[in-house]
């Protein structure tokens, strides 16, 4: 069953998907402040301008603090939910899981605004911490999804064997379950880290005077002279994201191979 038409369409579609990302390095190395063809020549000026931008480094530090905290917290919350939903039957399971997964489909603007309303009403100052609160909310469903598939492929009899051999609940979890779902945990950590790093709306509105990378880039785009340096930064971010995702994908697949499951595909 070969169909050349469909194959050509698939390749054209991939070009459409990658068009912006391919243009990113082209113009990041182009020796011209105006983003247009024809190209003017090779330069690394925009990368050094980016490197020497102190405000950018502050935003970068903020982003790193946020993404690391968010990845840790949402993976932890994801672990609780994924373990509960795969191992136990409990009352109101479907509505509870629905509520936990809801941020996946709720417009971020609605989440951001409702959080702001409450935070302002109880007098909390907007800062890095409030961004973390919001990001954990939107990252947890992704952690739950990844970890649920990790827990689902666990063989329950391994756990029971450990109990029969006299291990307690905690040591069974630490010695049997945790090592088997560890690839899923790493994958969840990296994915939620990436989501938090890229997220804009919550970071922009809940940050107060603390600026993160995505919000900094958004602000700089208003000044045409700053655009090439932002494209250089974008190039670096794309490289970081792809590296993290490749590592996450590696661990996800190793996790599936470890428990002898079948690869069901992507992250979502």
């Amino acid at each position: 069953m070969k169909s050349p038409g469909l194959r050509i369409y698939a390749i054209a579609y991939l070009i459409f998907l990658y068009a912006p990302i391919i243009l990113l390095p082209i113009f990041a190395f182009n020796d011209n402040k105006i983003i247009a063809f024809p190209l003017s020549g090779f330069t690394t000026e925009w990368f050094s301008e980016m490197w020497n931008d102190t405000a950018l480094w502050r935003a970068f530090t903020n982003s790193m603090i946020i993404s690391t905290s968010v990845a840790t917290l949402s993976t932890l919350l994801g672990l609780f939910a994924a373990r509960a939903t795969t191992r136990f039957q409990f009352p109101a399971k479907a509505p509870i899981m629905g509520l936990v997964m809801l941020p996946l489909v709720l417009p971020e603007m609605i989440l951001a605004m409702s959080l702001i309303v409450v935070l302002l009403a109880i007098g909390v100052d907007l800062s890095i911490k409030t961004i973390i609160l919001g990001h954990v909310l939107i990252c947890t469903p992704f952690a739950v999804a990844i970890l649920t598939s990790a827990f689902q492929s666990l063989d329950r009899s391994l756990e029971e064997a450990a109990y029969d051999l006299g291990e307690g609940t905690v040591s069974t979890f630490m010695r049997i379950i945790l090592p088997l779902v560890l690839p899923g945990i790493i994958s969840s950590f990296l994915i939620t880290f990436t989501i938090s790093l890229d997220e804009f709306i919550i970071a922009y509105f809940l940050g107060g005077s603390d600026v993160v990378l995505s919000a900094y880039i958004f602000g700089q785009f208003r000044f045409p002279a700053k655009v090439p340096a932002m494209l250089a930064l974008g190039t670096c971010l794309v490289l970081i994201s792809i590296t993290l995702l490749a590592i996450a994908e590696y661990f996800r697949r190793r996790g599936i191979a470890k428990v002898g499951g079948k690869d069901a595909g992507g992250f979502l």
């Binding site: 919350l77 994801g78 609780f80 939910a81 373990r83 509960a84 939903t85 191992r87 136990f88 039957q89 409990f90 009352p91 399971k93 509870i96 509520l99 936990v100 809801l102 941020p103 709720l106 609605i110 989440l111 605004m113 409702s114 959080l115 309303v117 409450v118 009403a121 609160l133 919001g134 954990v136 909310l137 947890t140 739950v144």
Partner: peptide, 26 residues
Amino acid sequence: GFKGLRLISPTLFYCVLLMAVPLATV
């Protein structure tokens, strides 16, 4: 049922406090 609810309670608590309550406020 109790064990399941106990295990999921931190995540549920977080979602109620930071999503359900703010949405209700709006």
